[in-house]
Design a protein around this nucleic acid. Structure first.
Length: 258
DNA sequence: CGTGTTGTTCAGTT
DNA sequence: TAACTGAACAACAC
């Protein structure tokens, strides 16, 4: 499930393989993933362009070119694949960029992801919607201000892209577990110490997850028990409750997260 | 064959 | 008016 850390991985992948490449063709096999453009429009806008730096904003990947910027959103199941030689077309490939050095393919099983174009000079937020500061760049003071006046639950606030950008279901679970905070705590009710813990947990989880390009599953990670039939807290061994919070499945240590 | 799954949007509510 | 909640959506595994 692409969240901040996964998109960070896509960013490095794109910069490693396609930075500096020239676009020779664009083939769209499913128009549904295009937003605000058409297969013809996308092709015309990108043909002959050079791909420049890819960067990340929240869960969005922004591919700069010497023309328009290409925006990728990965939804739940999106992926990016580069191949220097002709390769097998996969069932869920949706957009294929033919390059002078191979091709870059965007795909997604469920078509919740999107590909959009932003022309030079217009704002990316017209496509992405309002985004709060990136979660990996938020300082403890900024986090405190961000949460102070919020009436909603912690988990829903952390996943609210217009409050903080980049966190999804799994990262928010991981962060709250590490901070020993219950997802249904009111966001605006945290003590200074809890805010400090939350910020520390967020920084650690994101730094490590970004390095891996996904949430690690090793010891010390809640992720390692996700999906198990009888999940136990990797820290204390107590049962992990699987509850619904913010309309999502949340994994919560029954002992440590209050 | 119904249920569960999650990122985003949107309708509806506080 | 802004913040908030929950349902809908997509497609597939189970």
């Amino acid at each position: 499930m692409p969240e901040l850390s996964d998109v960070e991985g896509f960013k490095r992948y794109a910069n490693r393989h396609v930075r500096g490449a020239r676009v020779e063709s664009v083939h769209v096999s499913d128009e549904q993933v295009l937003e605000g453009t058409t297969p013809q429009g996308l092709g015309r806008a990108l043909h002959g362009r050079t791909l420049l730096d890819h960067r990340r904003r929240g869960k969005w990947l922004l591919g700069a070119t010497d023309g328009p910027t290409v925006l990728f959103n990965f939804g739940m199941t999106g992926y990016l694949r580069f191949s220097s030689r002709p390769d097998q077309q996969e069932e869920h490939d949706r957009v294929r960029f033919g390059l002078d050095r191979g091709h870059l393919t965007y795909g997604s099983q469920r078509k919740l992801g999107r590909v959009a174009l932003v022309t030079q000079g217009s704002a990316i937020e017209e496509v992405t919607g309002d985004l709060g500061p990136d979660a990996d760049e938020v300082g403890v003071q900024e986090l405190a201000e961000l949460l102070r006046d919020r009436r909603g639950h912690l988990k829903s606030t952390l996943m609210n892209q217009s409050a903080i950008a980049g966190l999804g279901n799994e990262l928010s679970d991981e962060i709250l577990w590490r901070a020993r905070l219950h997802p249904d705590r009111r966001a605006g009710d945290l003590s200074d110490e809890e805010l400090h813990d939350l910020h520390g947990a967020m920084s650690e989880v994101l730094a490590e997850s970004k390095r891996h390009g996904r949430i690690p599953e090793g010891p010390g990670w809640l992720e390692s028990v996700r999906g198990e039939s009888d999940p136990r807290c990797p820290r204390c061994g107590a049962p992990v409750d699987v509850i619904t919070s913010a309309g999502r499945t949340a994994y919560v240590c029954s002992k440590e997260q209050r």
